[in-house]
Design a protein around this nucleic acid. Sequence first.
DNA 1: CCGACACTTCGGCCACCGCCGTACGATACG
DNA 2: CGTATCGTACGGCGGTGGCCGAAGTGTCGG
Lengths: 235, 235
Amino acid sequence: MHVPEATRLATLASLLADPTRAGMCLALLDGRAWTAGELARHTGVGAPTVSEHLTRLVEGGLLAQERQGRHRYVRLADETAAQLVESLAAHAAPVPDGERPRTLRAVRAGQALARARTCYDHLAGRLGCAVTEAMIRRGLLTRETGFALTDAGLAWFAEHGVGLEQRGRRPLVRACLDWTERRQHLAGVAGAALCRHALAAGWCVRSGSGRALRVTEQGETAWRELLGIDAEALG
Amino acid sequence: MHVPEATRLATLASLLADPTRAGMCLALLDGRAWTAGELARHTGVGAPTVSEHLTRLVEGGLLAQERQGRHRYVRLADETAAQLVESLAAHAAPVPDGERPRTLRAVRAGQALARARTCYDHLAGRLGCAVTEAMIRRGLLTRETGFALTDAGLAWFAEHGVGLEQRGRRPLVRACLDWTERRQHLAGVAGAALCRHALAAGWCVRSGSGRALRVTEQGETAWRELLGIDAEALG
DNA sequence: CCGACACTTCGGCCACCGCCGTACGATACG
DNA sequence: CGTATCGTACGGCGGTGGCCGAAGTGTCGG
């Protein structure tokens, strides 16, 4: 019956309705820019196919691209695009046992991702959820009247030198559904600042090619002292 | 390269990647249960087609169904499903002028929706955004440290007899992106309670077949006295 | 200026999917 | 119990879209 909104919605959804494009977007959830070739190797399809997919995703507004010489770098267009991918991934049913990867390498990679990773620009996985819950337990964050920082929380960020500038229209805190833990973790300006700080201070380092993070030795100390988190226990 | 999450994500997205299914889900955003026949008339496709679509949507977990006699009632499965549809609809580009409906009837319906409607179980459209902003202006709601009710806000709900019971795992307040206004409005337990109260007290009544609401005369008085909202000015 | 490399364009193949008409089962109503 | 109504199963048609191989364009490095 000709409802134009339905067509727009379907067009947007169709961008993620293909396993190859979906795999690209999930890979790009690490918040970084990938080249077309890297995505081709990651998804296991040919270069021409990736090229077409990228064109569609860029035209659909999900991805932004920058061309540098003979490379085509793409990344998620903005935070809202990342949220879209995240919320769909979080809502998708968990992978049944029968379809789990069987190679040792793939299992290891999956475990690393579940332990700690970035979700666009903030911390996710068991580490991200543990941080969020520790902050709630210590009264820095509350979900009593909505997901928000308390005064103590604001003081905590200032005290530890984690800057919360850069506020445009973006919310200071936001709840983001973790797609491995199926619980909420901290996102928004505060989540991004904390993640940036953790990387800059060497509490975590990027590990592997994608989103995965590894907690360093000094990171274990820092997380324990600051928030009482036992990073060893994250598996 | 065989990433099972990508397949799950694509499968979920493909449910909304068809204009007919997307139109059904948008219609169901009114939070009520529709019969298969109503959806067939609404979308303009045949009964067999709707039947197949519904089966897919139910199996995919987006819709829940109840069979009563010879009728098949379907509704959005839960709040998270509604959120998914909403966030995709909000992210989809606005309808360009060229594709706007031209018939008087369709234009009227579009204007009514933009003025006031339900979004699953809370208020949306210009009314929903006006309510949210009025609450922020009056210090009942804040977005300073995240989107949350203030103490004054909690008192306001209690004072006006809008019950906030029923808290399970669901957040008390949540921000929901309005897909006509492109601004956030109040959702969550508080948003649902306010909407329920507005309907029960006769401040708004359902209008037309779907999500649209109409502000009654006593509603105009109530919104003005309670929150200083001039409902006439909503268009 | 030439070869290596990264990406793109084109043409064609194949699979899938949305749709309908028809036929059928199941339920309400007189 | 007949009839109208609501929904479902099946077969088939047509369009779309994902994929690749081959050829082409632009860029970097020597």
